[in-house]
Simulated scan of single mutants.
Amino acid sequence: MSTRTFLRDNGLSLGFGALFLASLVGQAFAGLADFNDRQLARGSQTVGLADYLTSSSFAVDVAENWQSEYLQFFLYVFATVWLIQRGSPESKPLSRVGRGSDRDQLLGKHLHRGSPRWARAGGWRTAVFAKSLGLVMAGLFALSWLAQSIAGVSAYNAEQLSEFGSPVSWGGYLVSADFWNRTLQNWQSEFLAIGSMAVFSVYLRQRGSPESKPVGAEHGVTDESG
């Protein structure tokens, strides 16, 4: 496979991967400037980029966004099995609500030569593979939420000590207002974005995008992309 073909065939993942890295670098520099501004306001010493990148302050800012994104996809993967939005290309039509038949899912006698190995294996391996996308998203959400809580309690306690307050335990931080404020401000934005996308895509179009219906499709048409 030529480099040009590889780039074409993987343009979506490579493009968003590049945007992710660029955004993370931007966040690092902007976060460092903000952190040092707060340090100066408190009369504390500023830090360099390397120290900031290994700090709990940077880690918690990154992790709290990651966990909300993976929560969004984890819930969406499972919710769209049973919930529908009439007219949205993000939704299945009413007639296909549920887990789908073996024919729909290309299982059992409907398998073909190119089917994934675990889909052909049967038993527990096929059962796990049939839920693998949601399970991985759930696992990544749990890990990033755990990372947020660990980095968060460290950052919170550093803030407390700098202001002569009392540090808290990890368990105490999990029920603190700081932890849930950080968590819920990300969750509410993710739920709003994904819900509004499902509704907007009923009535609005983006020509050529698989996230949109064909421009001339009726508003009530469901599960059709252009």
Rank of each mutant, 00 (worst) to 15 (best):
G171I: 05
E224M: 11
S212G: 03
H112D: 12
W66S: 08
A155D: 01
R99Y: 13
A127P: 12
D51Y: 01
L14D: 06
R205Q: 02
S149T: 06
D61V: 14
W180R: 02
V136Y: 07
A193N: 09
D223V: 07
V199Q: 03
D178Y: 10
S149Q: 08
G139C: 13
T80K: 07
M137I: 05
F29K: 08
G114K: 13
E224H: 15
T46C: 01
Q206C: 09
F6Q: 11
G100H: 01
T5F: 03
S44V: 06
S13M: 04
V215Y: 06
P167M: 07
A193G: 08
F29N: 10
A41R: 02
A18C: 14
Q85N: 10
Q27Y: 13
A119M: 13
L111M: 07
S166C: 09
F129A: 12
Y52F: 02
G220H: 12
L107Y: 04
S95V: 12
L111Q: 03
S154T: 07
S55H: 00
A138K: 15
A138P: 07
E224K: 11
G114T: 15
N65S: 10
L174Y: 01
D34P: 13
N181M: 13
G165H: 13
F179G: 01
L146Y: 12
L135A: 09
Q72P: 08
R8M: 15
F29G: 05
T54G: 15
A41I: 07
S88L: 02
A41P: 13
L107T: 05
S196Q: 12
